[in-house]
């Protein structure tokens, strides 16, 4: 009897502990969001235009997946939130880079026509 009481106490204590640890629910939304953000970054050409940022995002996502499978939901949630902003950063950088390159290219083409104009103008 004493023994079964002891088991009950231990069980209750364990459950209580588990309850305290897993107060964060499984972060399904966060994982979905970070996956989508990674996809967006890849679509924006981050592989070429923001490789470092994209790598950071992927690493965090992998860590989040790891935390998820070991049921560390709070860690998984935070990591996937970070993976999402990292991926957003990769996308923003890729897009900024594209526009910057377009500006440079246009500047060069204008310069080229100008030079051509000046040269033929002075002939």
């Amino acid at each position: 009897m004493i023994r079964s009481n002891l088991i009950a106490v231990v069980l209750t204590a364990t459950l209580g502990l588990l309850g305290a640890c897993s107060s964060t629910p499984k972060p399904k939304t966060e994982i979905a969001l970070s996956n989508a953000a990674l996809q967006n970054a890849e679509n924006a050409g981050a592989e070429q235009l923001a490789p470092l940022e994209l790598r950071t995002a992927r690493e965090k996502q992998a860590q989040a997946d790891g935390a998820l499978s070991s049921k560390k939901y709070n860690t998984a949630k935070q990591l996937s939130e970070q993976a999402a902003v990292d991926a957003e950063l990769a996308k923003a950088k890729s897009e900024a880079e594209k526009s910057r390159l377009a500006v440079t290219e246009t500047e060069q083409s204008i310069q080229l026509i100008r030079t051509e104009l000046d040269r033929s103008g002075s002939q």
């Binding site: 970070q82 902003v85 950063l89 923003a92 900024a96 526009s99 910057r100 377009a102 500006v103 246009t106």
Partner: peptide
């Protein structure tokens, strides 16, 4: 961390939009 990444994102978006306008 999230805040500082968001700030970087905001700065990059601003930079891109400025470049697009220049374009």
């Amino acid at each position: 961390y999230v805040a500082s990444q968001k700030i970087k994102i905001a700065e990059l978006i601003a930079q891109r939009k400025e470049d697009d306008a220049r374009l």
